[in-house]
Amino acid sequence: MTGAVSFVVPPGIDDPARVSGGNVYDRRVRDGLTGLGWRVRMAEAAPADAGELRTALRGAADGGLVVVDGLLAGVGADVLVESAARLRLVVLVHMLRAALPDADAGVVADERRALGVARLLITPSQWLRGQLAGDGVGIPIVVAPPGTATAGAATGTPGGCALLCVGVVAPHKGQDVLIDALTALGPAPDWVCTFAGATEADPAFVAALLARAAALGKGERIRFAGVQTDAGMDGLYRRTDLLVAPSRAEAYGMAIAEARARGIPVIASRVGGIPEAVGPDGAALLVSPGDSAALADALTRWMTDAGLRRRLTSQARDVRLHGRAWEDTVARVATALADVP
């Protein structure tokens, strides 16, 4: 069950300075298909440059199977529509633009047009599949949840209050909600919170976060670590007691899966595909998205209730050996690609 496939992705899929969930997913699928014997051709196109996307698609042979990262669909609708008759298009939909709080109506409409000409859509969660189906997409949709690499168990800290938040620093990831929650904790035990992820996407948003933390006297407890290498992330996870994912929108939550693979409990928003990433077996507290008071309450419970910390940590360590491997993700994608007409 092998074949040939072209991948068209945003620039920097292998750039350690451009780490994102989408890049990791694309890279794992690419490498996994190659390992299974597929002939994989890679091409890059900037998300805001339809010309680059057109050039990338022209490199694929007539009738060729082409997988396009969904980040390119919103601005490349015209290009995908004009290429649909010549190529067998598949779109990897990491997230729908319509699910983002600040979505541009024109981009949302173009994304809908682009997805409509694909022969297959691949998504990371059942939630996102439901969003697509509810939006009237009438083509096959395959769910291939992200996997995790084998990782050692986190050691955490003696105090249990080392917090980690992973993701590009931007409004849809909700870091402002977390900072508001942290500033409302009152006489909670000492805590530190590390934000790991790119800070270039919305500099004004980042500046406002720093200013608010400093004004409320919490700046010394909050660290923006930027993009990390794999080794750097391993080090951060190893020293983490609790992962916090305060997203306003999330298709799945790869950082949650990574935390689970290391036995780290989670406090997260009950939104999008996050409940799927958390799973049914505990080790997490879920709160309403955008609700800093509810998040502060959950954090206070974690920090002041030693029994709760022991229970969630024990549950997290119990489930860490039962996560999904990337090989499972790749096998599901490979099966779906082999059946594209």
Rank of each mutant, 00 (worst) to 15 (best):
P10Q: 10
P11T: 13
I13N: 06
D14T: 15
D14S: 12
D15T: 07
P16Y: 06
A17N: 12
R18C: 06
V19N: 05
G21C: 09
G21N: 09
G22S: 12
V24C: 00
V24K: 02
Y25R: 10
Y25V: 04
D26M: 04
V29A: 04
R30A: 11
D31R: 15
D31V: 09
L33I: 13
G35E: 13
L36A: 14
G37W: 08
R39G: 02
V40D: 11
V40K: 12
R41P: 01
A43C: 09
A45Q: 11
A46S: 15
A46N: 11
A46Q: 13
A46P: 07
A48K: 02
D49K: 07
A50G: 01
G51F: 10
G51W: 10
L53E: 07
T55M: 08
T55Q: 13
A56C: 11
A56Q: 10
A56F: 10
L57F: 11
L57D: 09
G59W: 03
G59T: 08
A60V: 13
A60C: 14
A61N: 01
D62G: 11
G64E: 15
G64V: 01
G64H: 02
L65R: 09
L65F: 04
L65G: 08
V66M: 03
D69C: 01
G70I: 07
L71N: 07
L71P: 00
G74T: 06
G74Y: 05
G74R: 15
G76S: 07
A77N: 05
A77D: 14
D78Y: 00
D78K: 02
D78A: 15
V79W: 00
L80P: 03
L80T: 03
V81G: 00
S83I: 00
S83W: 00
S83C: 08
A84P: 00
R86W: 05
L87D: 05
L87H: 02
L87T: 05
V91P: 00
V93M: 09
V93I: 07
V93S: 07
V93F: 10
H94G: 10
M95A: 14
L96M: 14
R97W: 05
R97E: 14
R97D: 03
A99N: 15
A99W: 01
L100H: 06
L100D: 12
P101Q: 05
D102S: 12
A103I: 10
A103Y: 04
A103C: 12
A103F: 05
A105V: 15
A105Q: 14
V107Y: 14
V107C: 00
A109P: 12
A109R: 14
D110Q: 14
D110W: 01
D110M: 06
R112G: 03
R113N: 07
R113L: 08
A114E: 03
A114K: 04
A114C: 08
L115R: 06
G116M: 00
G116C: 01
A118H: 04
R119C: 00
L120I: 06
L120E: 06
L121I: 04
L121G: 02
I122Y: 06
I122W: 12
I122H: 06
T123C: 14
T123G: 08
P124N: 12
S125F: 09
L128E: 11
R129G: 15
R129T: 14
R129Y: 01
R129L: 07
R129I: 01
G130K: 09
G130Y: 10
G130N: 08
